[in-house]
Design a protein around this nucleic acid. Sequence first.
RNA 1: GGCUCCGUAGCUCAGCUGUAUAGAGCACUGGAUUUCGGCUCCAGCGGUCGGGGGUUAGAAUCCCUCCGGGGUCACCA
Length: 634
Amino acid sequence: MESIIKERLLSNAEAIFGSQIEANLVQFQMTRKDVAGDLTLVLFPFVKILRTSPQEVGEKIGAFLKQEFAFIESVEVVNGFLNIIYNETFWIDRLTKIASDENFGASEPNSKPLKMVEYSSPNTNKPLHLGHLRNIFLGASVAEILKTNGHKVIKTQIINDRGIHICKSMLAWEKFSPVNEKGERETPANTGVKGDKLVGKYYVEFDKHFNTEANQIIQQWEAGEVSGYPSAILEEFRKFAAAREGKDEKAVKGLNDKIKDLAKNQTTLLREAKDMLVKWEARDPQVYLLWSTMNSWVYEGFDATYKSMGVDFDTLYYESDTFLLGKDIVIEGLQKGVFYRKDDGSVWIDLTEDGLDEKLVLRSDGTAVYMTQDIGTAVDRYKDFPDLDGIIYTVGNEQDYHFKVLFLILQKMGYAWAENCMHLSYGMVDLPSGKMKSREGTVVDADDLMAEVVAAATEMTKERGHLDGMTDQEKENLYRQIGMGGLKYYLLKVDPKKRMMYNPEESIELNGNTGPFIQYAYARIQSLLAKSDGEELNFDASKITLNPEEKEIIKQLDLLPSIIDEAAKELSPALIANYTFELVKTYNSFYQSVYILNEPAVDAKRMRLTLSKNVAKVVKLTMRLLGVEVPSRM
RNA sequence: GGCUCCGUAGCUCAGCUGUAUAGAGCACUGGAUUUCGGCUCCAGCGGUCGGGGGUUAGAAUCCCUCCGGGGUCACCA
């Protein structure tokens, strides 16, 4: 509508203003809620150019528009703004159009280019936690939004199944796992422990012994027992140790941390883990078997978690498959002169001219680092999907720098598609007690958390729900829908870019800006429609006068397509959540203020039912975009 | 220290491609049902938009600076 009005204003500028005007002078905005109007034109830009008063130019434009467009009921100039009011017919037409379009809000499927959305991408050495939950819900939601917006979408993840971290778990399991009477070490099968949890346990185990060994080394050094250690390391130790003299607590701690790093590098455990990684890259059969066994445990565990979350993937990438390609590309880049080799054999890229640092892309022992495999993976994906028009990486903002470098490297390697790669960077999830720290045991486990929210939903729904006649299975499903719906909505309603606070009590709330609040509105409409007993929904528009709440609902429904466009462009499910919350609030207010089934005037009754049905339709669609299910009873 | 992100009501967050008295939820206070699901609705309380300066007819929004906080600068991922 805006563009039509703008067009007409520009083409008639000569008549209205006495001269042509710049297109960017015509600025529309939504009319403030507390002011009458459906669209507002800002008058200040004209005032500046034409040197008249806002009142004068506003009235001129207003009179022109009113005579030009039949759907404009009236216009009003207030404080430098021209508020335009559409007539009832306009809004009723909008409602009829929305009602007749089953796919209202969605764009033609596959009408836009293919996007790949990557999310989750866990390490295989420990279970998923609260941070992954935000990541996964975000990525899955963005994929749905893009799909509904007309894109072809491939959902994927890169599984970090190789690297020093998994070697640590493997080593610890080999060294420290108890052996049972049958001579077996611990497995998911013989302990009943979920696979990812079991492997995670040994990662922690490694860290424990690792620290102990490092501390012993430090004690030796402090006591002057230094035989067998490289003199260069000892020299550094003495430097840090001496520097502690007379420093404050914080500085001493920093120095001690540096000493600890030195000591860690001298531990047998770390050396063994590193040896294991080298062996793994050389495909040592024994190491490879252990690796694939432990990884399979983890995958089983992850699959169960993904199932609880209600998310899936179209295709998977494993670093163990892509890192070699990454190494090849690094060699290729070395020949091209994009990278250079240092004396110790390590390979680097110099990004100082781009305002960044030098970055390692291959270790001196020839093994791959994180960056190496990310290069390989990206190239691999474009080989697999030649019509790919961009990869969206859902990864926390602590890796902003990494992706800046990755995209830059890909560009320098000459891949034109690099400019379509995007980092969907999201903020950390904090707890009321502060940051999650694995060392302090404050990490919130994903499985535990989901079980908790469903349990809380169960308790509250038993108390307040309308469950008569539901089977136990239906009830269980409902509890799950409410608990998971609440959790997903809670994590998605905040702007992804921002750091957010996870408050366990708030996340299971049912009132206010929550998933269950929206689900309740949906269920109530379903109940209403069921009781309407097949009432026809067509009505005689001429017999209808819209009250303010009704008009407001139509206006909000009408916004849906632009909201989805915006959410797709910004990769922000939060925009969808906020939109739906506003819509539901307006609907609830309407519900409270009028009769629907009990409305005696048949046309008004049908119109209100139509309105209700379409609010439910939009709620269902938008909640689907967030991965939130809507129950018809609760 | 370099780079980077953030600072809006007691708390959690919208608004930030500039524009009319800065919004919502929670909490708190007070109301609403002989009505279709009260997990509802209505109202009140509450803010020098971190401080200062600048650009502009107009700044929470753009620029500079200071203060406070996070992230990152690994041959970890």
